[in-house]
């Protein structure tokens, strides 16, 4: 595992902890840095990272607190507090 991959994993962990302890702006900084490292090193982001971050405002999402998670026919809709919606199939 390269340093860049390890950093993305660690930043996700830090972002999750910051978001859960009520520091969304700190979590956002970690999320943005993880994205930046991934794009500059041409690495994929982990699936959990993609599902629990907002593409528009880079928030780390906490279902029930900062995000609404609803099922529709064939897919899950995750709505961020900023209004952005993301879908994935089930």
């Amino acid at each position: 595992m390269t340093v860049a991959e390890e950093r993305i994993v660690r930043l996700e962990e830090l972002a999750r902890r910051a978001a859960r302890s009520g520091e969304p702006d700190l979590a956002r900084r970690y999320v943005r840095r993880a994205r930046r490292i991934a794009e500059r090193n041409r690495l994929p982001l982990p699936k959990r990272f993609k599902r629990f971050t907002c593409d528009r405002c880079d928030r780390y999402l906490v279902p029930g607190r900062t995000a609404r998670v609803r099922t529709r026919s064939g897919h899950v809709v995750v709505t961020c507090d900023c209004g952005e919606q993301a879908r994935y199939p089930y």
Partner: peptide, 14 residues
């Protein structure tokens, strides 16, 4: 994370 890679690694949380 090892002492050698620390300067290239994530410092937040240390």
């Amino acid at each position: 994370m090892t002492p050698e890679t620390l300067v290239r690694h994530e410092l937040a949380g240390l």
